[in-house]
Design a protein around this nucleic acid. Structure first.
Lengths: 194, 194
DNA sequence: AAGCTTTGTTAATCTAGATTAACCTCCTTT
DNA sequence: AAAGGAGGTTAATCTAGATTAACAAAGCTT
């Protein structure tokens, strides 16, 4: 089944009966996006939480000067959405756009509320998932304050080597909070050092 | 009861029976800290999640140069802990230290696991709490990239006017990711403008 | 195979914010 | 009331990283 990776992922955290899995699959929609398509658009309400089955997407924010800032990337087995918009059902601050052709498993807002009623373990599951996401986000805040751009790049490269391969450098620069020119300079320094 | 504010806070999100409240209060410990005392120390395992009943605490990180970086503040009705350490039960990255005499309601790690079994709504409650915390943390990442220091200070002042009053400026500067000297300069600019 | 568009590099100049250091309050404590 | 410490200000100098601009390489389209 197409949603097997999702089931496998969930059951790493909580147990699901075969009945649970049937209910769950009734409320999950598989959807394919082409490279360049938007899963969420800034200003629209984020209607789904998406689990990436294959492909790659970026979450970003366009500031008032028109500059794009990458909030996060998502590849296989990651979740993506504008969570703030999804939970409040108000207009999204962020875009989620595919960097490759991307297949996702989607929960709609209403579908997920139903699932929380019918499969109470999902409350626990998402609690644990979000706890980890929150911890990672806090660490990123600290790193942005206490590390130089070069150090942050090295941490990123170590932590997400698979993402670095798949994503253009200027987007990585944006994720790190620096310009593409400065990232290029850092990379030049690193290669001459080795 | 001393834990009434906690009950009130939880029941804004989920329903609790009087039986639930009795069970809950058996697993919550009230604790008083003096100004300057540590609720969590970097390197120790974070053993509790604390809900602030009165007072004020800072969560901070000491980097390898010995400089302190403020991760967050907590006042009445906020939660504080090193969540990463709490969920993994591994040594904490952060300190949580009281800036005033502070009264908290604490959940121990084991106590909370028991409570999750006995009061399943708590999974939902904490899911919702952490979702909001995650959204706030992501917004902070974006703000740090897309706003100047002055703009970030104004956002902070607007968002947490009550915290600004109670906390020394050099800690606010650290929270904003700037030096106390630069914050002082920003404040001077703002007062002459008005 | 020529011409776009997208991605990446190099280099000169510029700036937001850091660093250093001196000084100014207020509080406590003795 | 003197002395010390915690918090805050001002100003000179310095630097990590931004900005601007020009060019190079690699896809794609047609």
């Amino acid at each position: 089944m197409e949603i097997d990776p999702l089931i496998k992922y969930i059951t790493r955290y909580v147990e699901l009966t075969s009945q649970d899995i049937i209910i769950l699959s009734q409320h999950v929609k598989i959807r394919n996006y082409l490279k360049g398509q938007y899963i969420v658009q800034q200003g629209d309400v984020c209607k789904h939480e998406s689990f990436v089955l294959s492909g790659c997407a970026k979450t970003s924010f366009i500031d008032k000067e028109g500059d794009e800032h990458i909030v996060m990337f998502a590849i296989e087995n990651w979740w993506t959405a504008d969570l703030g918009s999804f939970i409040s059902q108000e207009p999204a601050d962020y875009n989620v756009q595919c960097l490759e052709n991307t297949k996702v498993a989607q929960f709609s807002y209403d579908g997920l509320q139903l699932l929380y009623q019918q499969i109470p373990q999902l409350d626990r599951f998402f609690r644990m998932i979000i706890q980890h996401a929150f911890v990672a986000s806090q660490k990123r805040v600290v790193r942005n304050f206490s590390l130089t751009a070069k150090e942050r790049y090295l941490v990123f490269r170590n932590q997400y080597p698979d993402i670095e391969q798949r994503v253009p450098q200027y987007l990585i620069a944006s994720y790190l909070g620096i310009t593409k020119q400065f990232l290029s300079k850092i990379r030049a320094e690193l290669t001459t050092q080795e």
